[in-house]
Design a binder for these strands. Structure first.
Lengths: 204, 204, 204, 204
DNA sequence: AATGAATGAGCCTTCATTCAT
DNA sequence: GATGAATGAAGGCTCATTCAT
């Protein structure tokens, strides 16, 4: 639940505000959390919070963007060290599982937060983040698709096919609806991902 | 976006209230929608709304439970007419896709609505619904699992593996983040589902 | 300080709210008056106030428009009974003096309230009121101007010339800056008004 | 709109703060203007503003007192060069018109600003200013009143009678409610002033 | 003289809910 | 079953002011 040090700001105050906000949001829900509670938990005054964030929505947006960035960044680093089609697919699945496992409250928050009410600023940041992620993944896998090691499918289906099961299980697990931890399902979901998009090469 | 006639109540007023509420929730979000707006859109008075529903949360709960029931019910009917492992898996995937396609606002609402703030009454209804669905699906597939036509996997992984990709794609599509309609992806997702859990029998 | 019965609304609640608001505004100033204080003084609840008035500014606007209407209406009635150039001028001056004298708090409020922050709705009402007043006065005096009984001056100078001194004295008196009451200056100001715009006819 | 160099302070910073404040007050209103906005416009920091002025009210007071002093001072200088009853009356009217014309934003600010919320310090300054002005005018006109060249009227009626029409017209003009500029009405208002208080001497 | 982060009291407004008719 | 005026608790946000540097 610690807000990554690469996040939002290097200043102490804003970081502690975000951490407190995340804790509150996770315990009581975003709408149910009052600014006053974030004050109490973070030790910052109302004014101080508004000095760093334009509004409550601004906190939500920062938390959302930071979380996705942190998550994507981790995947990027792991993918940099990976090679091969199957290894890549498994890396993506496992990286997501690891991030969620290590950032449960953050993940719960992200799953629960719609992008509908975001500021233009954060909406734009989100778009850029998603684009960058998509480009990175594409750069890695395109050669393998061309080589026939990965099934040729509509571009917008890969993510749902590979990560959809993880997201679905994660939502349930984080909600408490499932006993076995997400981490213990690592093999099931990375096997499945490869089974769906992988194609074993028949050597001529 | 019509509230199914098998839903909640056979009376006209409550149905029109639910329909208006769903429309509002979908356009502005649940929290952003005020009772006054539901009054305006439904033509009912404040008092009338409170006559049929205990609270705003009651409307949300009814809409959620009704939607899931409607969705499950459709799957149940289709599964009754199906036979075989692969056919069953495809039926489940396609039924979900069809329901979402025909009830986009409703689906968007369900995806966006957390179960956290439900009334005990609705929470219980939801539990029963989910249990019944699970039992139904299990009754259908267990023989095929025993026969080795379907992979033996942890019980709580089937739903994520089979439907996770659909849910993930649906969320994006309903949000407008993807151009191609969910319906056009029917084959992709039912193929994938079968590829993940299906096991072709090597006939000896 | 009583809100005229011809004002704003015939309903009891809104009238009592306006009366309470005027009293508060007069005692502590518009900006310094809180909605809570108007609640206390009027006996209405917060919600009730917002049920009748869109905002605090809405109360200010209603009070302003009502006051001017009341004032103009009185002048209109007196002018209907008047005849002749000099009599008309004196009637206008004296009507204003009487209204201010009988509605001191209201007058103080009107003098202190700028039209800058009015709602479009109230701004429009104000415009219509002023136009109607101007037309009425013009209809009365035009014949006398044509007959040479009243000096031919730029149209927009009559009001300042005739009523300017009264307004100036009234502002001071209402502020407590002058001892002698406005009412006791009736002759001084109506004499002066006639002296400025009146022209005695030299009979040939 | 330049803050006169004889005003408040000879230092650059405070003068630029006052100028910025006046511009803000004029554009958005006193209450609507925040200290932060004055910072932005003046380039001074919050702390700097509070270094020179005790409070926001202090800025308002300084601006008010300075404006009136500047205005009175101009009249004093012109009256020093004048002689005779009629010339004196016309000088007073025209001096006011000229000042308002050359200091429109300042005049608008003064008209809009009540004296109610002033600091004791500024309230006292204002009193002294008004007293001095009154004494000066009295010193000039008393001989002419005694000589019967100016009507004998209650002392507190002269200012309203002579300047009331100008103030009334000025308020409207500054508000944009009247097309013709105040300057173009100079003759109308000085003629009228003399007509009201002047008495031609029958030499006999 | 200057800075600007930090404070925190306070206010307008919203809105789910009640209840007399 | 239906109405809608009335309630009032609660919260996001503003902004004048302070103070450590």
């Amino acid at each position: 639940m610690t807000i990554s040090s690469t996040s939002f700001s290097s200043k102490r105050r804003p970081r502690s505000i975000l951490a407190a906000a995340l804790a509150c949001f996770d315990q009581t829900g975003v709408d149910e959390t009052t600014i006053a509670e974030i004050c109490r938990k973070s030790g910052a005054s109302t004014g101080s919070i508004y000095h760093f964030f334009d509004s409550k929505q601004g906190i939500v947006g920062a938390l959302l963007v930071d979380g996705l960035r942190d998550n994507y960044e981790q995947t990027r680093q792991r993918l940099n060290k990976a090679s091969g089609a199957q290894n890549g697919v498994r890396t993506i699945v496992e990286s997501l599982i690891d991030w969620i496992t290590r950032n449960r409250a953050w993940a719960r928050f992200i799953y629960a937060t719609g992008t509908g009410s975001l500021t233009a600023k954060h909406r734009e940041a989100l778009r850029q983040l998603n684009d960058a992620y998509f480009e990175m993944v594409k750069a890695y896998f395109q050669p393998h698709v061309d080589a026939g090691e990965i099934a040729a499918l509509p571009a917008d289906c890969y993510a749902p096919l590979i990560l959809g099961p993880v997201h679905e299980y994660a939502r349930r697990w984080l909600r408490g609806g499932v006993k076995t931890s997400l981490g213990q399902r690592k093999n099931v979901f990375s096997d499945a991902a490869w089974r769906v998009v992988g194609r074993s090469q028949t050597v001529g």
